[in-house]
Design a protein around this nucleic acid. Sequence first.
RNA 1: GCGCGCUUAGCUCAGUGGUAGAGCACUUCCUUCACACGGAAGGGGUCGCAGGUUCGAGCCCUGCAGCGCGCACCA
Length: 979
Amino acid sequence: MSEIPKAYEPQAVEAKWYQFWLDQKCFVADPQSPKPAYSIVIPPPNVTGVLTLGHVLNNTIQDILARKARMDGKEVLWLPGTDHAGIATQTVVEKSLRKQGVIKHRDDLGREKFLEHVWAWKEKHGGIILQQLRALGASCDWTRTRFTMEPEYSRCVQKVFVKLYKKGLIYRGKRMVNWDPAARTALSDEEVEMTETKGHLWHLKYPLLDDAGQPVPDQFVIVATTRPETMLGDEAVAVNPNDERYTKLVGRKVLLPLQNKHIPIIADDFVDPKFGTGCVKVTPAHDPNDFQMAGRHQLSLTVVIGPDGCMTKEAGEDFDGLDRMEAREAVVEELTEQSLLLKVEDYVHNVGYSQRSHVPIEPYLSEQWFLKYPSVEKALECVTGSARVPRADSGVTPESSCDTRASGATPAGASGTDALPGMRFHPGRWAKTYTHWMSNIKDWCISRQLWWGHRIPVWRGNDETCSQEQLLDVFDILQKADKSLVAFTFKLKQTEQVAGGNWTAGSKHVESIEACVMPGADDLIWELEDNNFAQDPDVLDTWFSSWLWPFATMGWPAQTATLKKFYPTSDLVTGPDIIFFWVARMIMAGYEFMGELPFRNVYFTGIIRDKQGRKMSKSLGNSPDPLDLIGKYGADALRFGTMRSAPLGQDILFDEQNVELGRNFCNKLWNACRFRQMQGGEVQGEINPALLTSDDRWILLRLNQAIREIDAAFADYKFSDAAAALYRIFWSELCDWYLEAAKAPLQSGTPEQKANTLAVLDFVLSHLLRLFHPFLPFITEELWHGLGYSADMPENQGGRTIMFAPWPKPLGDDELSFYALDATAEAVANAKYQLVTQGRNLRREFNIPAGKKIRFILKPAGSIAAHDIEVLRILLNAEAVEINTAYAAPKGTPSALSPLGELFLPLAGLIDVVAEKARLNKELAKIAAEIERAQQRLNNPNFAQKVPPAVLAEHQARLAEWLGKQKHAEAALAALAQN
RNA sequence: GCGCGCUUAGCUCAGUGGUAGAGCACUUCCUUCACACGGAAGGGGUCGCAGGUUCGAGCCCUGCAGCGCGCACCA
């Protein structure tokens, strides 16, 4: 800090230090380190994503945790990377190719060619977000950056698939799934967002048929539906078996309008007689419930809506090819013409939308892969326990924590991280949400009809695609193959059974074989494909790869040094919106494949919203670009502003003013350090207790208090509390009082006094910079070196970088007594500052210009140090503060009473009597109110009996203080009256 | 329908039993030699409503209202 600018200029500083940290390999984790491990895996952002404020929040917290852990002496791994985001990325690339006119649909290119384009896109645009994280100061170990589609990771995914397949947990089946007609793929239940939507309830008239199949005139069955277009696929009308209105009709038939089809009236318990007309149209191919009913009643399935969301041929030639929404109108129009529409009601109901494409989900019958979740019990137990256990690394008492954690024990000594039992959610209430979901999970549809993703490692052949000879050959190969490389199932024609695996290929007829192949079994795959076997075309849900993230990124399945050192990870920081998608699944995967939970603590951030409380979204344009904010205010400012306004568990209303506040804060920090430097001199190490002033003692105690508060905040993951404590100690205490008071010895003290003041200042600043470092990495590094504090420290503990400087500890009892830091020391300074405020108030009340130096007189209550008088003089901007124990104030001299004594502002007859009377009366009114309150409480006979003695004394002292002030003010008023 | 969260100063939020707080905004004054991205002094709250527990309630309990978010197959 040679040429010190008046204002902090972050840009050059940030670039310089980030590069320095990279060059010095400060972020690289060493699995061989003897230090205890601390690890976080980043929630992998989409490879094609760009940085949002949500990422800023999330990654700032991770960076704070990582940097704090380094200063705590931990070996830190913050593992970064991206995921391939199947649907999102494929959609983006396909859209871009369409825009360029390269294709109309990806089918025009074919799988291989299309994937080449996706990879090219990934190479060009992928990982931008990781670059952007560097601008934020993220201290990720970039040497370990991972991507879910890279070869090693893909092998993990494949291996996991085969393992689960072998266990019988993965199966294929024809089911009604959530179909996204825009992306043309199946989705999991979690990817469907139920949205309350205004729609209509159409009441349709289905003509009743007689035994001969002729419509009975004027007899109809009325069904109500929100989706008239599906009636084209109706196979029945259902009523409740106990519904007396309709029992007679069960077994008869109705005429399905437009399709001219005879469909039966069936009885089924599913139907709620109280809803609507009590008659339900049954569309087995397009409604999950109706599909169930069809199973119970052997109804056939007519598919009238295709995978693209358009009507099929089965819908009839009037509707074939129409979009489902167009078809709705057309059907309604047609029914209206035929007078078969009874009425239309407005109706608000929940409609499932694709989380990805934002189009209504279509229930769609198709062949998909499903996973029966593994290790559900363990995953449920580890978070559901309610025993309260303090964190091993903090002094937090059980009572002070309301987080939920497990009671179960964890295999100890399995890793380098602290072996704590169970897992904690912060805030703990999310455990309930988690438990609820875990207790009601249904099988996970893991297949996606996409090209970008991990292709399902299953090869199939059947008697239509292969010759019987090929099937038998394959069967033979698979039987002889290494069982660790492949799992397979097969189907025989007719009813042959395989008894104890003794069935041998012979004259029997094989219908189909399905082989699930481990990664690396290339020869086997070659043989399968040589026999006309084909790989399943589907890819896996992206979450099926990211649920392995905590260990697949560390080299699993090999037992790498990294895995041994850093798994399980310490903390996970993520949004509650992916608690099911990712967190729950990672926990299950952790237990299933590692035998242990993947992380100890999960911190759920809030959701960033705009000032009006709306979610940030691209379409609303209410989402500022974090990089613009960094450019304008600096990364530290963005970090601090965000953390200061992000309390645990609450959504955050983003306001650029918060970032401005962060910038102002950095500037203030800069200038406080600039002030220190302008005092000159070397870094002052030794503090001489004999020379400590009341201000010195006060700031040291305040620092101690701040360290305790910040530690407590960290222990509870309350980052906004930590930020608030930092703000207070630095701005409201150090700058507002100590730095101003220190000007007394600095300007007029002896060289020894001056040196000691600087020693205290250096002590405080060097501690504050370290406390600030996790929040403000750049400016603290700059000032750390600029003020020369680095020179004082061992090379690897702050000498090279503040990143590894030891985290400040509160002073111990011996140190407190060595420096005589006790309540008395604090009280003297507090009384002094209180007197200053009162004196300044007098100046204001009597309109003394701020710049004018005047004389105060202090009638002290006890002895007062020369230093304190000098501080009073400076802080009151006084010409002098005269001490006069015998001062007899002229009538009406304005004064203020404080524990330090009575302060007079001698105005030599210049007093505006009326104004002063008004001021005193106002003060008296306030005092009277306080006295009233205190007396009321003390007069309550129960109060003295039941209240703890300390509290009683406190209230009594308070009353005494107010009574003293009242006396003082009354006397002043009386003196004025005599004039 | 069930669950969760929120309701405190104009705004955004802290505050889990003992004198209602912070930041921003507001009023007035000040470019004094760290900082106007600053300093000083102020004004501003019957803590959503109604009961209850307690010597004492913003805080604990019960009920109600409003807002938000999840979960849920009722057409």
